[in-house]
């Protein structure tokens, strides 16, 4: 009889540990999914801040038909600038001369001399760089200035970034789907564990029902146990996530990328409450459902 008790305890312990571990892994993946979402948002924000609409002006040897073979006059330039600054969507307007455009290109392609050595001043026309309050509203600028006198072309960088964002969104979606699958897995495992624990304690439960213990009295210990082991798993997952972000992203990746468009520790603390909430809800709902079926009066 004592052996049976010891056996049951050991079995419950191993089941409790497996609930902790599966919760940890699934919550870690869920956290990664949520962090991927935040990473995508951070990157979007970072790039959107730098997204500019470039209004290229006609120069001395224009190829665009709109220029009619002539460079934009100073008066045309002044008109364009004035009109840009009056648009409510526009945040700021900068003028970039041919020389500045040449220097920037040289700097950006300094590692590929073949490209940069063949470029001379004037190959890139001068332009107005327009920063928008909402980068997605670029169409306003395009429609208004495409074909205006002195304008060679209007180019929006958002168009260039779009495929890149699409990939990021797909990856995020995949991560979240995977995490949802893991949450379902942990719900099923919690279900099996609760049933197993209830089976190991069927004598106690039988007596409790016989002497008229209320359903709440019978169920509460199970729910508390699953919630506790779930919470332990969630805490471990948050720790693991923090370690991942702190050591992998902030130490390693930021050294390679020299970039501030990365998530940090604060993002982990933002995601953590969601993970804990998911665990509590999953643990309570699954153990209630399991017990409701298992412990019917």
């Amino acid at each position: 009889m004592l052996g049976e008790v010891g056996n049951g305890l050991r079995r419950n312990l191993s089941m409790a540990i497996s609930v902790v571990l599966v919760t940890m892994v699934s919550m870690y993946l869920l956290g990664l999914g949520l962090l991927a979402q935040r990473q995508a948002d951070t990157m979007k924000g970072y790039w959107y801040d730098r997204v500019q609409v470039s209004v290229y002006l006609c120069n001395d040897n224009p190829t665009q038909p709109n220029c009619q073979g002539k460079a934009a006059t100073d008066q045309q330039k002044a008109t364009i600038k004035g009109q840009l600054q009056q648009l409510p969507e526009v945040k700021a307007v900068f003028y970039e001369s041919e020389q500045e455009a040449f220097d920037r290109f040289k700097e950006q392609f300094r590692n590929s001399p073949v490209v940069s050595n063949n470029l001379k001043v004037g190959d890139i026309p001068d332009s107005f760089r327009v920063q928008l309050k909402d980068p997605s509203k670029f169409a306003v600028v395009t429609s208004q200035f495409e074909g205006a006198p002195g304008v060679a072309s209007v180019q929006d960088q958002e168009k260039v970034l779009k495929p890149f964002f699409r990939v990021i969104n797909l990856v995020t979606l995949f991560a979240v789907l995977l995490a949802a699958l893991m949450v379902a897995c942990s719900a099923l495992l919690i279900m099996t564990t609760v049933r197993q624990v209830a089976f190991a304690r069927r004598r106690e439960i039988g007596i409790m029902r016989l002497v008229g213990a209320s359903n709440a009295t019978i169920r509460t210990p199970f729910i508390v146990e699953t919630v506790l082991s779930g919470l332990l798993g969630a805490v471990l997952a948050v720790g693991l996530l923090w370690a991942t972000v702190h050591f992998l992203f902030n130490r390693l990746l930021s050294q390679i990328l020299y970039d501030r468009a990365l998530i940090g520790d604060t993002d982990v603390w933002f995601v953590a409450p969601w993970m804990v909430a998911v665990v509590v809800v999953v643990a309570v709902v699954t153990s209630m459902l399991t017990l409701w079926r298992y412990l019917r009066v």
Binding site: M1, L2, E4, V5, R203, E204, G206, I207, R209, L210, V211, G212, A213, S214, N215, V297
Partner: peptide, 22 residues
């Protein structure tokens, strides 16, 4: 939900005692 209350007014004894060994 009122079944537990009913059972508090009924005692039960079985052939196999049903005691908790621990």
């Amino acid at each position: 939900r009122k079944v537990p209350r009913l059972r508090r007014d009924i005692g039960t004894v079985f052939q196999d005692f049903r005691l908790l060994g621990n």
